[in-house]
Amino acid sequence: HNFPEVLDYRDRAVARHNLRLHVASVQEYIDAGTLRERPDGVRNPLQTVPLTEAIQRLGFDAVFGGGRRDEEKARAKERVFSLRDEFSQWDPRRQRPELWQLYNGRHAPGEHVRVFPLSNWTELDVWQYIARENIELPEIYFAHEREVFQRSGMWLTAGEWGGPKNGESTQTRLVRYRTVGDMSCTGAVDSDAATIDQVITEIAASRLTERGATRADDKMSEAAMEDRKREGYF
């Protein structure tokens, strides 16, 4: 359940840089009967199987991700180089020391490493870098009017994924997204920050991480993210 603005941005980036794009589709797995839709409509946990099978099929030795330690406590346990076994599973006990920023990417056949170059960055660091390098972003990260409804204290975008339900009414609000994931579990925040400088000012005053404020999938249990990472999730 991707946001259309994000897919448009991805496709523009692919065309501009003449990249080769491989898409592992949750919907294709559901259509084939390999995966089954969850009752709550959230698809983030369903991404693990398509992701891990694509890594094995394409033979990747290293896969880059944008995770940061300040996002969520399970991410804080992981190194910049994260060894995954032949089933793409993560075992915290197999983590290697990374003294003086020296990284060990050795792995056995069938294994691979997940690499998180932004591990030690903060959300504010990312936005200051975006400002310095004048990086293009999807408009969804800036304040815009959007039809949303409230669920579990978050503003979610109405859509075919299963919202709103009975008793949930939509309204048009000025919001922006601090993080982008599955539409069914990624909330918007009230904001009038329409420029990079305004976003930086807003983040500097915030006391909640973007995932803590806007990601319902991390609230399923205390160990929700760690459980998924052990299974092969990013």
Rank of each mutant, 00 (worst) to 15 (best):
N2H: 14
N2P: 15
F3C: 06
F3T: 05
P4Q: 07
D8E: 12
D8A: 09
D11L: 12
D11S: 06
R16Q: 13
H17L: 13
L19C: 02
L19R: 02
R20M: 08
V23L: 15
A24Y: 10
A24H: 11
V26T: 06
V26A: 02
V26H: 08
V26N: 02
E28I: 02
Y29G: 01
A32C: 05
G33I: 01
E37N: 07
R38G: 00
R43D: 13
Q47M: 13
Q47F: 11
T48H: 11
V49H: 13
P50E: 10
P50M: 09
E53K: 11
G59L: 03
G59I: 03
G59V: 01
F60Q: 06
A62T: 11
V63G: 09
F64W: 10
G65S: 10
R68N: 00
R69C: 05
R69V: 06
E72F: 06
K77P: 07
S82Y: 09
S82H: 13
S82L: 15
L83M: 07
R84I: 09
R84T: 08
R84L: 09
R84H: 12
E86C: 07
F87S: 14
F87K: 14
F87G: 13
S88A: 15
Q89K: 13
W90F: 14
D91T: 06
Q95N: 08
R96Y: 01
P97C: 00
L99G: 10
W100M: 15
L102F: 11
Y103E: 01
N104V: 00
N104I: 04
G105I: 00
H107L: 04
H107A: 11
A108F: 14
P109D: 02
P109R: 01
P117T: 00
L118C: 06
S119L: 15
S119F: 10
W121L: 06
W121K: 04
T122P: 01
L124K: 06
D125P: 05
V126Q: 10
Q128N: 10
Q128G: 04
A131D: 09
R132P: 03
E133M: 12
E136C: 10
L137M: 15
P138W: 10
Y141H: 11
Y141K: 01
F142K: 00
F142I: 00
F142Q: 04
V148L: 08
W155C: 07
G162I: 03
G163R: 00
K165C: 02
K165V: 02
G167H: 06
S169I: 11
S169E: 15
T170Y: 07
Q171I: 02
V175L: 01
Y177W: 13
V180A: 07
M183W: 03
S184L: 02
T186N: 01
T186P: 08
T186Q: 06
A188D: 03
A188Q: 03
V189E: 04
V189I: 03
D190Q: 13
D192G: 02
D192F: 03
T195V: 00
I196K: 07
D197L: 05
Q198F: 00
I200K: 04
I200W: 07
S206A: 14
R207Y: 08
R207S: 13
T209G: 02
E210C: 10
A213Y: 05
A213E: 05
A216M: 15
D217K: 08
D218Y: 08
D218S: 09
K219I: 05
K219D: 13
K219Y: 09
E222T: 04
A223E: 15
A223Y: 14
A224K: 04
M225E: 10
D227Q: 14
K229N: 15
K229Q: 15
E231F: 12
G232C: 12
F234G: 12
F234R: 14
